[in-house]
Amino acid sequence: MKSLRPWFEAWQFAAEAQQVIALRMMQFWRNDPSAGREATRMVTEKMAAAAEAHAAAASALMIGQSATTALRRAAIPYRRRVRANRRRLS
């Protein structure tokens, strides 16, 4: 039987991402003074995470690792940021 761990981790990541979205939306709806900074941070973080993910996947593929490994490595920057944002915004 295959492990359910990857499914659980995907579910956990999706739940954390939804929580971050909800927390940010509440900030925007309340007209919080820091909402503008948060919006800027959100965009710059996404760009940085995308660059890191691309580099991680490319590096894995260049050294001969599987596409599955490359995808796992590409997800790490996103997971790290989502988790940090959830903690910071909660």
Rank of each mutant, 00 (worst) to 15 (best):
Q19Y: 09
V20G: 03
V20C: 04
I21Q: 12
I21G: 02
I21A: 12
A22E: 15
A22Q: 15
A22W: 09
L23T: 07
R24N: 13
M25R: 09
M25G: 12
Q27R: 14
F28W: 13
F28Q: 14
F28R: 10
W29E: 12
W29M: 09
W29G: 00
R30Q: 05
R30W: 02
R30G: 01
N31Q: 14
N31Y: 09
D32A: 13
D32W: 06
D32V: 08
D32R: 02
D32E: 14
P33Y: 03
P33V: 00
P33S: 06
P33G: 05
P33R: 06
S34G: 01
S34K: 02
S34V: 02
S34P: 00
A35L: 10
A35F: 07
G36M: 01
G36Y: 01
T40F: 15
R41A: 03
R41L: 07
R41I: 02
M42F: 08
V43R: 14
V43Q: 11
T44R: 05
E45F: 08
K46W: 10
M47F: 10
A48H: 14
A48D: 05
A48N: 12
A48M: 15
A50Y: 08
A50C: 07
A51S: 14
E52D: 11
E52V: 06
E52H: 09
E52M: 10
A53Y: 01
H54M: 07
H54K: 14
H54E: 14
H54R: 11
A55Y: 08
A56N: 15
A57T: 09
A58S: 10
A58P: 02
A58G: 15
A58Y: 11
S59R: 11
S59Q: 12
A60F: 03
A60M: 04
A60G: 01
A60V: 01
L61P: 01
L61R: 08
L61S: 01
M62S: 05
M62R: 02
I63P: 04
I63N: 06
I63D: 12
G64T: 07
Q65Y: 08
Q65S: 07
S66Q: 08
A67S: 07
T68A: 12
T68V: 13
T69P: 00
A70I: 04
A70G: 07
A70E: 11
L71Y: 13
L71I: 10
R72A: 13
R72N: 15
R73L: 06
A74T: 03
A74P: 06
A75K: 02
A75W: 02
I76Y: 10
P77Q: 07
P77T: 06
P77I: 06
P77C: 01
P77H: 04
Y78T: 00
Y78Q: 00
